[in-house]
Design a protein around this nucleic acid. Structure first.
Lengths: 213, 213
DNA sequence: TAGTTGATATATGTATCCATATAATGCATA
DNA sequence: TATGCATTATATGGATACATATATCAACTA
């Protein structure tokens, strides 16, 4: 049997990622309880859990709201993400197995197709596939966990693919270089390439935030 | 007003860190409720929270237990910790303020004293002080958060200072080198020194685990 | 004697109820 | 008319009651 609160967490996360719930939105327990047809107890567990993973924030007696990150916080987040993504590349270079290599190549191929088609949603999915394949190839389960968490936080702010458009080809090209470095077992180079790749995204944050406001 | 569950989290964490609760120990909700004189509701919130930050694990219908990390998991954890500690040093080199520098020097001095006195508990505290000062100096709040979380996970397995003894002087010396690199604004060098420093600790894991079993 | 099945007990998961703190609204007074 | 205080309403935090799944133990059968 699966816990109701676990399903709720999935649902709520989905609503946040899909943009239905936007940063700053208030979550009322009774409301959610009615909406999902359960009592407040599992709702509260779900909220508590999402507070812990940083998606919501609560003030005592004031309920929960979808967390709003400042530009500084988002930048900090990207900085850590870049470091860990780079680390994943380095480890992937060292540990690479045949099946990992295939998975990375598959992700890269998806990126190539989506970029050529200028299909932004497809590229977003392919991008995730590519990065996840590298994470997995690192062989460090805890690192994978961390990256998933960070992704989920960042994703809230990734809903507007406004300016990605011009970068699809460029992004794919960077992906290609990164995977080559990994396949060549050049961990340090892969690390640096990935860090730059990530920081490039981070540098576009200010305009992203402006689009949000 | 402060939430009861928050106080419980502090309490339980302390019991875990202090070794009162050891990895593998079962936590019974009713038990804890009696022990702390509250109902099961805040107990459950506390448990949920600690599961999310990785200190406990639950199996549906089977309750919570203090999480047992395998050697592989602990190693992965150290690997990530080393990377992020290194990153903190790099950022600290870039951003260093006078007050940060003073804090780091103060931590270093505490380490020196404790090492000279061969006072292991004091060194553990000083060590934390030193590392925390660097974290803070990085200026990246999210990085600090991550490092605190990782520390709290690792600390459970740091209760037996068995073999630290011979390393106090050596560890202090490494700390000194690291802080010099930071003060010299040599971020890359500080990064590498810190990574090595951390990995040295990680390499002592196998014997630590054996001591636990 | 050993294994399987069923019943009972216990602990988790959920629902509801109660207390309290906060916020909002309305009235009175300056 | 505006401001301040008081009262009321509402939502969160905590306690308790209830349901259900699992585990353990015992009894019966092969």
């Amino acid at each position: 049997m699966v816990r109701a609160s676990d399903k709720l967490i999935e649902q709520l996360k989905h609503e946040i990622f899909s943009g239905l719930l936007k940063p700053g939105d208030q979550l009322e327990e009774a409301d959610l309880a009615r909406r999902f047809g359960v009592s407040r107890t599992p709702i509260r567990e779900a909220i508590r859990s999402m507070v812990d993973c940083g998606l919501l924030e609560t003030r005592p007696r004031k309920g929960a709201m979808v967390r709003i990150l400042t530009a500084k916080e988002l930048n900090d987040l990207f900085e850590v993400a870049a470091e860990l993504e780079g680390m994943a590349c380095r480890l992937a270079s060292d540990m690479l197995t045949q099946s990992d290599k295939k998975a990375i190549q598959a992700g890269l191929e998806q990126c190539r197709v989506a970029a050529k088609a200028a299909d932004i949603p497809a590229y977003a999915a392919a991008n995730l596939e590519f990065h996840s394949a590298i994470h997995k190839a690192s062989g460090n389960a805890w690192l994978v966990d961390q990256l998933v968490q960070i992704q989920s936080r960042i994703n809230v702010y990734r809903l507007m693919p406004y300016e990605v458009l011009g970068r699809l080809e460029k992004s794919f090209e960077e992906h290609r270089e990164i995977s080559e470095a990994i396949f060549d077992k050049n961990g340090l180079h892969a690390n640096n390439l990935m860090r730059d790749h990530m920081m490039l995204q981070g540098s576009r944050l200010p305009s992203l935030l402006k689009a949000l406001a």
